[in-house]
Amino acid sequence: MLFYIFAILAIVSGAYMVLTRNLLYAGFSLLIVLLSIAGIYVLLFADFIAVTQLMVYVGGVLVLILFGIMLSSRVQDKSLLSENVNTVWGALVAGLIVVGLSYSILKSNISSLPWLQTMEMDVLGNQKSTVQTIGIKLMTDFVLPFEIASLLLLIALMGAAYIATDKQKV
């Protein structure tokens, strides 16, 4: 039941985000999409992912997007509107993705997947959250991707600092 509420919210506000011309409204409906997806994560017992989603996307990326929109609009004293470009190619790519996804979903027999049948409903067991498992996995099985991601972030940070510095004219 809860899942359907979140799913409908996500779909409706996602559709609104795509269809509205006002970029700022699109940004705010992205907020609802992200929140309802976080709700769906919680229903899937992925509490850490849900909160990380809030932290990174709502607290970081979305605020950055809104800041960008607000700082760059109203230059000509009107709200920023998006335009329709590449209508044919966009529709084609989107249609192909929809067809491909529906085809593979319809072809696969999801309820007979072996790991789904042996799955227990009590995912967490005695643990109170997934943090411990995620931490151990990150430091053992997935340590290389984890470190590479941190290196990438460091490079991005240095790049940002370099772009932002005052370049002395020689």
Binding site: F28, L31, D47, F48, V51, T52, L54, M55, V58, G59, G60, L62, V63, L66, Q127, K128, S129, V131
Partner: peptide, 18 residues
């Protein structure tokens, strides 16, 4: 009493900014 309360609190406060 959720297990990741501290993290949740930090995240939910950032909604305030929006």
């Amino acid at each position: 009493g959720i297990g990741i309360g501290v993290f949740y609190l930090l995240a939910i406060i950032s909604l305030d900014v929006v």
